[in-house]
């Protein structure tokens, strides 16, 4: 029994269902990554918090001033570990130069996008469980299979580090776009878009959704978290 029992706080079943399904999907082959790598990425996210190098980088004026080896026990290759740990622990200070260095070490933009999607999805699911004192959903068994390696050519250069989904975008009556860039960001790998937003949209939507908060409260919380993450977007 935890010291401060919040187990009677209400759960929303559609969130639980979305989280379970998304965790299961880590065990399946992706578009560019095999199932073993995807499961290991989930496990790496779960252990990255305890990495001493990340902590040192976090405390540094520039997180790129401290070099060394990340603490990792998953057997993932060092460059994937670097991506996972930066995203988990120093994502607020990612730079284009860092991104370029990742690609220069042989990671394709498509692989990068799939890794980013997997990490961000795990951060939401595990963060939600941790915040409310739920058991973390166990990592699934890798089911094998072969990545589809199906490239999406419906992408466009739009000023991001990576090409984003190419779509005809209309403005809504508010003057904001119907499909914001954040939805298009992982367009290089459509399956990553589906996987990530299956979780994201269970907890937030631009349109009315199942919540006891009013819209100003929802957007206040979103903005505050964006501010902690130094998110320009």
């Amino acid at each position: 029994m935890p010291r401060y029992d919040i187990s009677d706080f209400p759960r929303r079943s559609h969130i639980d269902i979305a989280h379970e399904a998304a965790i299961t999907a880590y065990g399946k082959a992706g578009t560019w990554l095999d199932s073993r790598t995807r499961v290991k990425i989930l496990e790496e996210v779960r252990s990255a918090k305890d990495c001493p190098l990340c902590l040192e980088q976090r405390r540094s004026l520039s997180p790129y001033a401290k070099e060394g080896e990340h603490l990792s026990q998953t057997g993932l290759d060092p460059i994937t570990v670097e991506i996972v740990h930066r995203l988990c622990n120093n994502a607020d200070r990612l730079t284009y130069r860092w991104f370029e260095s990742i690609l220069a070490q042989g990671v394709s933009a498509e692989q990068y996008v799939e890794i980013v999607g997997l990490v961000a999805t795990a951060i939401i699911i595990d963060g939600f469980a941790g915040a409310l004192g739920y058991q973390t959903i166990p990592a699934p068994r890798a089911q094998g299979g072969v990545p589809t390696r199906k490239a999406n050519d419906k992408v466009v250069e739009a000023g991001a580090w990576i090409p984003i989904m190419d779509i005809e975008n209309e403005a809504t009556e508010t003057g904001l776009p119907k499909i914001p860039n954040i939805f298009r960001a992982m367009g290089l790998v459509p399956e990553s878009v589906r996987h990530f937003f299956s979780v994201m949209s269970s907890q937030y939507s631009l349109t009315p959704f199942d919540t006891s908060l009013d819209r100003s409260q929802v957007e206040y919380i979103a903005s505050k978290m964006s501010s902690h993450n130094q998110c320009f977007y």
Binding site: V119, A120, T121, Y204, A222, K224, S226, C231, Y233
Partner: peptide
């Protein structure tokens, strides 16, 4: 739910 969602999407 909102806070954790945005902790992910900002990444």
């Amino acid at each position: 739910a909102i806070a954790t969602a945005f902790n992910g999407i900002t990444k």
